[in-house]
Amino acid sequence: MTETFDNRKAFAETLIELAADDERVVAVCNDSVGSSNLGGFKEAYPDRLINVGIAEQNMVGVAAGLAATGLVPFVCSAGPFLTGRATEQIKADIAYSGHKVILCGMSPGMAYGELGPTHHSVEDLSWMRALPGLDVAVPADPRQTRQALEALVAEPRGTYLRIGRHKVPTVTDEDSTWERGRFNSVREGKDVTLIGLGTTVARTIEAADLLAADGVSARVLNAAWVSPLDRDAIVAAAEETRVIVVAEEANISGGLSAAVAQVVAELGIGTKVIPVGLTEFAPTGSNDWLLEHFGLTGGNIAEVAREAL
């Protein structure tokens, strides 16, 4: 069994380290000290944790105001409430105003499993991607989480980051870099391209292994950036492989798969783009069960690719 690691732990540890070196770093939350793993931060920097209570619109506006005084606010809040309840604040106060706030959507996708669709953050990529002036990034493992936070403190920018709740295997190499707008190349391949982000990266790798056993060469891309999008990597995939399968723990209407499909459609070369993700509100089930339900498994991703070839 592959060893897995906790992204939220990496997030919390890195935030505390960065705060030690840089007094501008503050955390903003909505009664989410526990769920965002901010206990350590609170203990180390009680004055620099602004907990506004259960009030997401105010939380995002307050963060914009903090940024307007030169601080670097990390808003830490469950993804569904952050992006859903405060969409207009994210649009007007951060993306449009240009206040440099880092929005950290904790426990995104269907991480909250049985708590149901109200607590799933599967529309977030579509909503956030529609905003000019806001970066959207999804670190896939603790190494990328650390790299993302370090880059954002060095050069703050209005950003939505998805920080996963469940442990994930390492999917990046030790020498991999975190470059704005660049996908991470996981594996070379010439027949089919599998694109995942966050939790689905490991599952596309699993699919690539299954395809390799059948003699199919699969390229795997870790789409850590949804906005700005890595057009070069998508164009290369469309030109050099016959099929692109995009697997996302998100709604396929407007999410990463829609973004990829738009780029490929503009090329007019006929490469198929097949989305694997959510098309309806999820039934009751655990996160693992739901991922399987929506076909987000290595086996199904491989099967989808095989059928399309």
Partner: peptide, 23 residues
């Protein structure tokens, strides 16, 4: 800060007031 949709200025002002006090 950019305003227009109503109910945005006061939260941002609260953030500025906290930010100034912190510094």
């Amino acid at each position: 800060t950019n305003t227009g949709p109503l109910g945005h200025g006061l939260p941002v002002a609260v953030g500025e007031a906290i930010g100034l006090r912190l510094q």
